[in-house]
Design a protein around this nucleic acid. Sequence first.
DNA 1: TTCACCTTCATACTTTAGGGTGATTTTTCT
DNA 2: AGAAAAATCACCCTAAAGTATGAAGGTGAA
Lengths: 157, 157
Amino acid sequence: MPGSTNFLTKNKSIILYGVFLAVLLFLLKWLELRFLIINHALEIYAGSIAIIFTALGIWLALKLTKPKTILIEKEVFIEQPENFILNETALAKLNISKRELEVLKLMSEGLSNQEIAEQLFVTLNTIKTHNARLFEKLEVKRRTQAVETAKKLNLIA
Amino acid sequence: MPGSTNFLTKNKSIILYGVFLAVLLFLLKWLELRFLIINHALEIYAGSIAIIFTALGIWLALKLTKPKTILIEKEVFIEQPENFILNETALAKLNISKRELEVLKLMSEGLSNQEIAEQLFVTLNTIKTHNARLFEKLEVKRRTQAVETAKKLNLIA
DNA sequence: TTCACCTTCATACTTTAGGGTGATTTTTCT
DNA sequence: AGAAAAATCACCCTAAAGTATGAAGGTGAA
């Protein structure tokens, strides 16, 4: 569907270009006759042609590159989920330590406290302590809320 | 930082354009002298100018519109967090019912099973049953994983 | 109407999560 | 060096989450 629309648009541009060229031919012929009588004004003639066709070239290029611009928008859309900038301001304001953030990250990946403990080479009790601090700082009651809040605050991806 | 780079690029284009124009002036002067001797070839002279300056216009427009493309990327970026389209294909493929999706949604908002039960006017046991089905269908073990997976599959926002 | 599926609920049991408190060891900053 | 903050761990207890199984009413399609 978008391909055929594109094709039509291109054809329209070409048709327009053709019509424009026809009009220009008459204009140039008229200019040629005019300036053949006043034979010294050849530079003005050449300059006119240069300006007109520069403008035409710009117009043409802009017309033809517009569909390309739309395509680029789509590409950016695909690249969307790749970027994450940690909100260090919020991190500092909430007094969340590096270790706590680590725990938070693993928590957001769906790991259990036991799994987090194993991954960080500490005991289950340690993770529980970190959790308690995190919930307090984030002002939440459950890990699911902690993850939700942390994502909204850009503390985790 | 990107602004200054942009400015430099623009300046380079303008400088290049200036140099190009100077070269063209000599070329045109030469062409003019040539075709003044063979006085009938004026159309060829005009045509040459037209072609050259059309090409110049196209080149110019392409050079100058490149920074515009970057601006468009930024615009798309801003519009990013506003849209969510439910992935009904995945929903159908996993056989997740409307009610289960409701539970999943509330679960993702950090609500406890008891809170979900109250919100949906059913008992805690019902929610537990829904959860069990959900975990099975999503092939996960915990609610945090369920939420993570569901977000990746665009089942919830 | 029968069959499959959804939704609802229950009971019993296990596991995980979370709260409260206290303590020790590192790090870090002054 | 000494205070403050961070990280570590333990114990006990409660709450919430999750598992397993069974059951019953409702709906829609074959």
